[in-house]
Design a protein around this nucleic acid. Structure first.
Lengths: 133, 133
DNA sequence: TATAGGGCTTCCAGTAACTGGAAGCTCAAC
DNA sequence: GTTGAGCTTCCAGTTACTGGAAGCCCTATA
């Protein structure tokens, strides 16, 4: 199977698939003409990677998850730990973004947004009112 | 004023301040010994940048905001547009993360997390149930 | 006065995960 | 035989820094 078909079936760009080979996530065979020759298992692996990436797992996590997937003596606790850790990171990120969002939304609401220069957004950036106290 | 003091007062690492000079966000003077010589306005600018970055604005947005800040013939509409655009991007990002979070939390709850290999997380990554329909 | 230290300088490389593009080989079709 | 699509490799660029090396500068102390 050539790379284009694998790309279509796994949903990953050909560039990404080559990159994943580069960093050792997949090891397709090679045909005599030098073309990559993918097997079903390669497509399966790539689809797995695509889904893990879509859940936000890092490439490094993906490597771990893939290894666990292929190890049938794995302990599900190990998988769960990786996922929980990632979940915590997502929660942190969301909290961070929520905080930004709140401040920003507040500022945007306060700004007239007309042809005059007065702007609470810039004023806050230049010299924010002390928080708390 | 030397870089260390500016770093302390603006809250930005010295490395970052040098980087900001590199990309033209600040232009401190130079002392005869080659050391950067920062003025009050430089510190002010850097603090502005630090706050804009903390709100998640890109360096490019920061450049724009700084220019608007320094242009007293600006229209607040321009500033507001930049901020609203950024707000939209934050909202998108949050939505994305929320979706990930939901799927992931669901999978984590379903996983026993013991010493056995059976794992709904891996099963889902390997072969997810069709969505919708 | 010699030296030790800490602060400052520049420059290079690395990070994460790709993505774009150039140069060039291969293959199928007309 | 030639065209065009598909494949190959390799290099550079993206974002916003960050770490580290090599080396100058300044101050204080012995």
């Amino acid at each position: 199977m050539n790379i284009k078909e694998v790309s279509d079936r796994s949903g990953l760009p050909a560039k990404t698939i080559r990159y994943y080979e580069d960093i050792g996530l997949v090891r397709p065979l090679r045909a005599e003409n030098g073309y990559r020759a993918f097997r079903e298992q390669d497509v399966h692996k790539l689809a797995f990677l695509g889904r893990a990436r879509a859940l936000g797992f890092s490439i490094d996590d993906c490597r771990t998850l893939l290894a666990l997937y292929q190890d049938n003596r794995r302990e599900s606790a190990h998988v769960k730990a990786v996922a929980e850790d990632h979940l915590r990171q997502i929660d942190e990120k969301i909290a961070q973004l929520d905080a930004m969002r709140n401040t920003l939304a507040h500022l945007v609401r306060a700004c007239h947004g007309d042809d005059r220069p007065d702007c609470p957004i810039l004023e806050d950036l230049a010299d924010p009112p002390a928080r708390g106290s």
